[in-house]
């Protein structure tokens, strides 16, 4: 049986649930953190039945850093390898943010500063144990500021840069940090939006992430072809890009 423990932030999202199942099947302890406690209890029950050594539902709100200590203490109470996977995030419509600029700060908090603050507090503890993995789920939207969702993209870009720095810092301490950049995934976030293509299932993405953790990948595009797509999009000169609607 595995001696891993996973703290999963944003554990009611379909991608996080699929990932929680994947680690539960390998016998890990799963600590499921989010806001809908009733739903987290359902995820926990499901994980226990699927082979988790243990599962617990914990309260977490990316915008309330006061609650972070309790989560960190709970994770550090576990013996063995400690791991964290950050699936939190929200993507308000760009038009909503344009109408209410206060939403900008909230979007950045949800997608970047909230989870980064928690990771920053946890980092010394992981470094002390000298093992473990941090998985941070960003988005391909963070690779280039686009007309349709550049505030969300900017927050994800900030998070990706933070993770890159954290990788640099913790890599020398034996802790691995993996940045995940999913393309379009069939979740509540994308459901019903027109113009989606090459949409991956949450299970497919969760399997990719799980494999990436084992192979200690640094940056993982999932599905893999998004690396190519974003490679092309990144090379478009700004003079041309500013006229495009993609």
């Amino acid at each position: 049986m595995s001696n891993e423990s996973w703290l999963i932030l944003g554990a009611t999202s379909s991608m996080a649930r699929a990932f929680a199942r994947a680690v539960a099947e390998r016998g890990a302890m799963v600590l499921l953190a989010g806001r809908d406690m009733a739903d987290l209890e359902h995820v926990a029950a499901d994980c226990r039945l699927r082979g988790a050594r243990g599962a617990a539902a914990l309260a977490f709100d990316a915008r309330k850093p006061k609650g972070f200590e309790a989560l960190i203490d709970r994770l550090c109470a576990e013996a063995g390898t400690l791991n964290v996977a950050v699936f939190v995030g929200s993507m308000p419509e760009q038009s909503e943010i344009d109408a209410d600029p206060a939403l900008l700060a909230r979007t950045v908090e949800q997608n970047f500063t909230g989870p980064a603050t928690l990771l920053h507090r946890l980092a010394p503890q992981l470094a002390q144990r000298g093992s473990g993995t941090i998985v941070g789920v960003g988005s391909v939207a963070g690779d280039r500021g686009r007309l349709g969702n550049y505030v969300y993209g900017a927050a994800k870009a900030g998070f990706a840069t933070y993770l890159s720095g954290l990788r640099n810092r913790l890599g020398r301490e034996g802790v691995h940090v993996m940045t995940v950049k999913p393309g379009f995934v069939d979740t509540a976030m994308t459901w019903g939006i027109e113009g989606m293509f090459l949409v991956a299932s949450p299970d497919q993405v969760a399997r990719d992430i799980h494999r990436g953790v084992r192979k200690r990948r640094n940056v993982l595009y999932t599905p893999f072809f998004w690396m190519g797509i974003m490679g092309i999009i990144r090379t478009i000169p700004e003079a041309l890009f500013k006229r495009l609607k993609i």
Partner: peptide
Amino acid sequence: EVLRPERQA
């Protein structure tokens, strides 16, 4: 029109 809730709530 298809709605797809992800949580019981």
